[in-house]
């Protein structure tokens, strides 16, 4: 009984936080309303005793929202993220798509011939989940995961020019010699060695 009440409360929180995402005019509120929605779903998963999946859902989603806050400032033009803004666009089409998907999924849930459960849950759900996901494909996983991870790290290392204010291992600034600004004197070579780096 108590767990049913908790489930309903979590479901209501998840859905209403999802609604708030589109009703609010603040990017920060929308972001963290989405996080609240996902955290409620994570706790629901904990209720099903899917502890690993539940906790990792909360971890991933909160982290994702925090990262999204970084991208908000990095990549949104003119930084509307810091100003009140409308969270919806293309209203009619998206409402239509949402209603269609909802109808489809609900029909699927109601009409599907769900099998009865046979057997009991494994003792260690985390281990058996890993076995089920990766068991027959362990070699692929072992190869793919280091490659993926190395790709992520190296892409970030290449993209990050070691901070904005000072290079972390101090390296001398490369002299620029490919623009016309310093060629006006003409004749004398070594123009790229003039002091102070005239073009900023």
């Amino acid at each position: 009984m108590l767990s049913a009440v908790l489930f309903v409360v979590l479901a209501v929180v998840a859905i209403s936080a999802g609604v708030i995402v589109f009703r609010t005019d603040s990017m920060a509120r929308a972001t963290y309303a989405l996080a609240v929605s996902f955290v409620s779903v994570g706790i629901m998963l904990l209720q099903f005793e899917l502890e690993y999946i539940g906790v990792i859902t909360i971890l991933m989603m909160v982290m994702e929202m925090a990262i999204m806050a970084i991208f908000m400032v990095m990549f949104m033009g003119m930084n509307p993220a810091l100003m009140p803004m409308d969270m919806v666009h293309n209203k009619k089409a998206s409402a239509g798509i949402a209603a269609g998907v909802f109808a489809l999924l609900t029909a699927g849930i109601l009409l599907a011939d769900w099998p009865a459960r046979h057997g009991v849950p494994a003792v260690d759900l985390t281990a058996s989940l890993g076995e089920a996901i990766m068991g027959p494909k362990m070699l692929v996983m072992l190869t793919v995961s280091p490659v993926l991870f190395a790709t992520l790290v190296s892409a970030l290392v290449l993209a990050n020019p070691r901070g904005r204010y000072a290079p972390s291992p101090v390296v001398p600034v490369e002299p620029e010699n490919d623009d016309g600004g310093s060629h006006q004197g003409g004749g004398h070579d070594g123009h790229h060695q003039h002091p102070g780096g005239a073009h900023s």
Binding site: E51, Y52, V55, I56, L59, M63, D124, L125, T126
Partner: peptide, 14 residues
């Protein structure tokens, strides 16, 4: 909790 270590990690991501 069976995944206590992940729980700790989740809280520090919080």
């Amino acid at each position: 909790l069976a995944v206590g270590l992940v729980w700790f990690n989740t809280m520090d991501v919080m």
